[in-house]
Nucleic acid binder design. Structure first.
Lengths: 112, 112
DNA sequence: AACTATACCTGGAGACTCCAGGTATAGGCC
DNA sequence: GGCCTATACCTGGAGTCTCCAGGTATAGTT
């Protein structure tokens, strides 16, 4: 698994990025992350939900309870404009740090 | 500046990577990081020192006080074998997460 | 009726960054 | 000599965050 710190640094960008593709809900976001990582990475749901709540409190997300075709209640989250701007900032920051590490590791820099 | 989380996720890999090039000391590590970031990123030294102490406690680093040619006392840090292994792990984890984000952002994957 | 997968939530423990403050000294300038 | 700046290190407390363990509820399958 990931170090606590890297987990912390990546949850938010991952959530924002996933939601930038369209609205989704907690359980699906978890599955998406697991799939993206090739099954390597799986967050505890008790970690994800508080993060979603905090992000909503900060105005990055908005949510609405809806009933899916399956009959289940789901809380769908969608990006707000503020969330979209936050994603852009987080992305720039990630690329900034990544560029530093790439330099130290002798990897070729990323072309943005 | 960086989000607290990204800062947390990157300090350790950055320190380990910088020290993998050879021993160094707190103040120089700070300057190195600032230089690597093109002046954008500057850690507070009150953040760095406790990190170095923790890493030493965990056996990733070893330190020795020495007097530099300038006459100043410096605490030099060097990687231990355990530290080198930790770097390798942290690197793999970073690349793992980076690959996920790259996928979401439509960037080309990194060839390792 | 029991089980599994789906779907959400909370509280407390522990860990960590950040900030503000502190100590000490070499070298340059007046 | 006296002052300032850059160099060099350290600590304590506030606030924030992940992680874990626990809890609730229900659709579908056996």
């Amino acid at each position: 698994m990931l170090t606590r710190e890297l987990a912390g640094a990546s949850v938010r960008p991952l959530i924002l990025s996933i939601l930038s593709e369209g609205e989704s809900y907690g359980y699906a976001i978890l599955s998406r992350i697991e799939a993206l990582s090739g099954g390597v990475l799986a967050w505890d749901d008790g970690t994800l939900y508080p993060v979603l709540h905090r992000m909503q409190n900060k105005g990055l997300l908005e949510s609405s309870w809806r009933r899916a075709d399956t009959g289940r209640r789901r809380k769908y989250y969608a990006l707000t404009d503020k969330g979209r701007r936050a994603l852009e900032r987080e992305k720039q920051q990630w690329l900034q740090v990544d560029a530093m590490l790439a330099q130290l590791w002798g990897l070729q820099p990323r072309l943005t």
